[in-house]
Simulated scan of single mutants.
Amino acid sequence: MPLANCKTVTRTLSDKLDRALTLRERARVRVHLLGCNGCRAYASQLAALRLLAHSVAGHIETPSSQTDE
Rank of each mutant, 00 (worst) to 15 (best):
M1H: 09
P2Q: 03
P2K: 05
L3E: 14
L3Y: 07
L3W: 04
A4H: 06
N5W: 03
N5S: 09
C6T: 04
C6W: 03
C6E: 11
C6P: 00
K7I: 14
K7G: 10
K7Y: 10
T8E: 15
T8A: 14
T8V: 12
V9Q: 09
V9C: 10
T10K: 15
T10P: 00
T10C: 11
T10R: 15
R11D: 03
R11V: 03
T12E: 04
T12G: 01
L13K: 04
L13F: 10
S14W: 06
K16V: 00
L17H: 05
L17C: 01
L17S: 07
D18Q: 09
D18E: 11
R19P: 09
R19S: 11
A20F: 01
L21K: 01
L21I: 05
L21P: 08
L21D: 10
T22S: 15
L23M: 07
R24H: 08
R26W: 05
R26M: 13
A27Q: 13
V29F: 05
V29I: 14
V29Y: 06
V29T: 11
R30A: 15
R30Q: 13
V31N: 09
V31S: 11
H32F: 07
H32P: 12
H32G: 11
L34P: 00
L34S: 04
L34F: 05
L34T: 04
G35V: 05
G35H: 07
C36Y: 01
C36M: 01
N37K: 14
C39K: 13
C39R: 13
C39V: 10
R40P: 02
A41R: 13
A41L: 13
A41N: 12
A41H: 13
A41D: 14
Y42R: 06
Y42T: 05
Y42S: 04
A43D: 11
A43H: 03
Q45R: 15
L46R: 12
L46Q: 11
L46F: 05
L46D: 03
A47D: 11
A48G: 04
A48W: 02
A48Q: 12
L49G: 04
L49R: 15
L49F: 08
R50W: 01
R50N: 08
R50V: 06
R50G: 08
R50K: 11
A53V: 04
A53D: 13
A53I: 01
H54K: 13
H54F: 04
S55P: 00
S55E: 11
V56E: 09
A57H: 02
A57L: 06
A57E: 06
A57G: 02
H59I: 03
I60A: 02
I60P: 02
E61I: 02
E61L: 11
E61F: 09
P63K: 12
S64T: 09
S64R: 12
S65G: 01
S65I: 01
Q66Y: 06
Q66I: 12
Q66D: 00
Q66G: 00
T67S: 12
T67A: 13
D68I: 13
D68T: 12
D68R: 14
D68V: 14
D68M: 10
E69L: 14
E69F: 14
